[in-house]
């Protein structure tokens, strides 16, 4: 074979490039994100209130569009009530509606305990924390960076 050495070296590089995922993940456990859908905050709610704003399937696929719509409604149109597909009314608020249930308990994640953003009740407020577990678990897993925190952040002075 003419220039066999170079060709084989190149083929090894080619094979290595295309098998990166096999080596990168070698020996790792295929653990998806741990989404806490049954937090204490949710369990305390009456059964009729335990359903999210829309169905879980809808939320999984369209939560970003819903949040976007909520932002338009609340910030630009001054509309603060959302009527869902079942005709039920919700207050349009990330902090007061979404995070009422979806704030995660910091006890399960010691790093959050030291975070000044966590309230005394031991509940971290995802809106004030760059990495709340509920949002971050899936968003980190699929490398999608939500833009929520570019507005909903804790002012630097407040943490002092």
């Amino acid at each position: 074979m003419y220039k066999g050495g170079k060709i084989f070296a190149s083929l090894i590089i080619f094979a290595a490039l295309f098998t990166i995922p096999f080596f990168y993940n070698m020996g790792k456990v295929n653990a998806g994100p741990d989404v806490a859908l049954n937090t204490a905050a949710i369990q305390q709610l009456p059964a009729s209130e335990q359903q999210c704003v829309e169905s879980p399937e809808f939320m999984r696929a369209n939560h970003m569009q819903l949040l976007n719509q909520w932002r338009e409604e609340a910030v630009r149109n001054g509309q603060t009530v959302y009527v869902n597909s079942q005709g039920k009314e919700f207050e349009i608020s990330l902090q007061d509606t979404c995070l009422k249930c979806h704030a995660t308990e910091s006890a399960s994640k010691p790093a959050v305990l030291n975070n000044p953003v966590s309230t005394t009740a031991g509940v971290s407020n995802p809106a004030l924390n760059e990495s709340p577990e509920f949002c971050a678990s899936c968003h980190d897993y699929s490398a999608v960076k939500p833009l929520c925190w570019s507005c909903h952040f804790e002012p630097k002075e407040a943490t002092k």
Binding site: P21, M26, N62
Partner: peptide
């Protein structure tokens, strides 16, 4: 026509670790 991204990634990682799962 959205798909469940988290499930897709689990399937992909399953393929890459030779422990295929089908969420």
């Amino acid at each position: 026509y959205k798909v469940d991204l988290v499930a897709v990634k689990q399937l992909a990682i399953g393929l890459a670790t030779f422990q295929p799962v089908l969420p």
